[in-house]
């Protein structure tokens, strides 16, 4: 592999990484992966990748010709700066060693293209119920990073009522209310509307009339997401896809169950709805 090809390979990889990050940023898809506080850093990295690619291409213009620096070509095939390669064995195994290094370089290139291929496939944009089961649904705010420190003075979305006259409420508001009686009084027994992802309850559901409404709480990125959820009691039979987004209308209750206070939404209506623009809670 010549030095020119090596530089072009670097420039191509940097362009693809930069381009893909900027595309995710411009199409607001970064929000699917990262906490808002981290998105500007990743977007900036996308711009810097493109700048680095431009400089890599520029360096092609100042390359020495082969007869000026013959050993540069040897270095180039190894894709390393010449000063790092002077200890190389130029003996009988030279060709074999070069072949091995070329294969390794192709492998590394493919590895760096793998994330881009996953993004292009468009399948990795949300968790399935498998990860929710593996991580467990958090119903106790003390097990949630930072959220336990201080509850807001009033429910996070209670400023206005929806067209149906129901108070919009977040799952996390109900979890705060478990801990704080004064907060609970704001909406206990009132008609509320809540959005969450549908997770069937396989245990603790003897009558089969319960499911969980969950949202993903993240600290940095989706990799550290913790599902937070409340129980929804709904007597009618549901045929929702697992982790599908649902809008639930009902009344919040906070009964004692198993010696602990639980947050249960007694639903009067459950309907599918589109995913919110902010898929996570922070």
């Amino acid at each position: 592999m010549s030095l020119r090809i090596s530089i072009l390979r670097d420039a191509l990889l940097l362009t693809l990484w930069g381009g893909m990050i900027l595309w995710l940023s411009l199409t607001k898809q970064l929000a699917t992966y990262l906490h808002p506080a981290l998105q500007p850093y990743t977007t900036a990295a996308g711009v810097i990748f493109l700048l680095l690619a431009i400089f890599r291409v520029r360096s092609l213009m100042v390359l020495p010709t082969p007869h000026q620096h013959e050993h540069h070509n040897h270095d180039a095939c190894c894709a390393h700066p010449h000063h790092e390669e002077e200890a190389h064995d130029h003996g009988a195994h030279h060709q074999e060693s070069h072949r091995g290094k070329s294969v390794a370089l192709i492998g590394k290139t493919l590895l760096l293209l793998l994330p881009l291929a996953i993004i292009v496939s468009g399948k990795a944009t949300a968790y399935s119920v498998t990860t929710v089961q593996n991580r467990g649904v958090v119903g106790d705010l003390s097990k949630l990073p930072a959220a336990s420190a201080a509850a807001p003075a009033s429910p996070s979305t209670s400023a206005s009522s929806s067209a149906t006259g129901a108070m919009p409420l977040q799952i996390i508001d109900m979890l705060y209310a478990i801990q704080m009686p004064s907060y609970r009084e704001e909406f206990e027994g009132k008609k509320v509307e809540m959005i969450g992802q549908y997770v069937p309850m396989t245990t603790g559901n003897p009558k089969g009339d319960r499911f969980q409404a969950v949202r993903m709480f993240i600290t940095c990125c989706a990799a550290d997401a913790k599902p937070v959820g409340v129980i929804v009691q709904y007597p009618q039979r549901l045929t929702m896809p697992e982790m599908g987004w649902v809008k639930i209308t009902g009344k919040p209750t906070f009964p004692m169950e198993g010696g602990r206070r639980a947050a249960i939404l007694e639903a009067t209506k459950v309907e599918p709805c589109p995913a919110p623009s902010e898929p996570f809670v922070y």
Partner: peptide, 29 residues
């Protein structure tokens, strides 16, 4: 355990994988 100790979902793995990369890339850069 109420669920098996190991359950694999390829889209979930890919999703977490991309999240780690997108979070870490600016710091590595």
């Amino acid at each position: 355990l109420t669920t098996p100790w190991f359950q694999f979902s390829l889209p979930d793995f890919q999703y977490a994988f991309l999240s780690i990369l997108l979070e870490g890339a600016p710091f590595l850069l």
